[in-house]
């Protein structure tokens, strides 16, 4: 079984809100000093889901693909260290400045080039833009079925049985492969690579593909091919001034809070 994991490198979502800055002229986030970018956490869970199936099937192969700058090699290496077999980086100026559409378009072309893929695993959404579109876009481009927001995935013959998280419960979905599956945090913690695996992954060669390798034109990629235009990126205004309850003991503070809530007619 050949499984593909799509991995995105993003600014660390645990960056303290106080360190979060926007370059208004460029409509870009200014990287926080001293905080390295990370593999989007949901993508690590997507990798975990794929690796569990690789182990279950016994003879599986996992390829990790990332679209990004040269620095995205680090995200690819992390998934290789977790146990993926091969890494592919889609990197060229033409890929930059795109949207969900151009990203899915390029990733789908890479999956087609790999040829023998049984499933594509993505995070439920990238933890930077939180759109949650790319996995479904790949499915549309390839004409594959999909199941999103998975908390458990099992191989079932050539197909998959996916447990999905719903607003008020869970649903089990069965579908034939090849298919696209997006994975949610409910899957559980991704495995932590051992030092030896990290060293092995560091020595692995990551293949770089350009638009020409994928048979794609610059006009269908990046800013040129995007269908959404980011007009403005800004920080929402900060909330109100908090009133901290006075009191020498928890009992006094609690009484003050109860009274404040009553005065505000909230209780």
């Amino acid at each position: 079984m050949h499984l593909v994991v799509c991995a995105k490198q993003i600014p660390d979502p645990e960056t303290p809100p106080a360190a979060f800055r926007i370059d208004a002229a460029k409509n870009e986030v200014i990287p926080a000093q001293g905080i390295a970018p990370v593999l989007s956490p949901f993508d690590a869970q997507a990798a975990e889901a794929a690796l569990r199936i690789k182990e279950q099937s016994g003879d599986g192969k996992v390829t990790v693909i990332s679209l990004g700058k040269e620095s995205a090699q680090a995200a690819i290496k992390q998934v290789l260290a977790m146990g993926a077999d091969e890494g592919v980086l889609l990197s060229a100026d033409e890929f930059q400045g795109g949207d969900s559409y151009t990203t899915a378009h390029a990733l789908a072309a890479a999956v087609k080039k790999l040829g023998d893929v049984d499933a594509v695993f993505c995070g439920r959404q990238a933890a930077d833009w939180d759109m949650g579109q790319v996995g479904l876009g790949i499915a549309e481009e390839l004409g594959w079925p999909s199941a999103i927001i998975a908390k458990d995935v099992k191989a079932d013959g050539g197909g998959f049985i996916v447990q999905r998280v719903l607003a008020d419960g869970f649903e089990t979905v069965k579908m034939a492969g090849p298919a696209v599956i997006t994975v949610s945090n409910e899957l559980g913690d991704p495995r932590y690579p051992k030092l030896q695996q990290i060293m092995q992954a560091a020595r692995k060669t990551v293949t770089t593909w350009t638009p020409a390798d994928l048979g794609l034109q610059a006009s269908e990629l990046g800013a040129a091919g995007s269908r959404l235009k980011l007009e403005k990126l800004f920080q929402p205004p900060a909330g109100g001034d908090v009133q901290i309850m006075e009191g020498d003991t928890p009992a006094e503070q609690a009484k003050a809070l109860a009274q404040a809530l009553r005065d505000a007619k909230l209780i």
């Binding site: 908090v242 928890p250 609690a254 809070l257 109860a258």
Partner: peptide, 26 residues
């Protein structure tokens, strides 16, 4: 606290039981 209108700085284990009591005594 940046988004809150009211706050208590303290250990919930000490604060919340007192808050329950205070609400019931209102």
């Amino acid at each position: 606290f940046k988004a809150a209108r009211f706050g208590i700085v303290g250990d919930y284990k000490a604060v919340v039981p007192e808050l329950i009591k205070a609400i019931k005594e209102l």
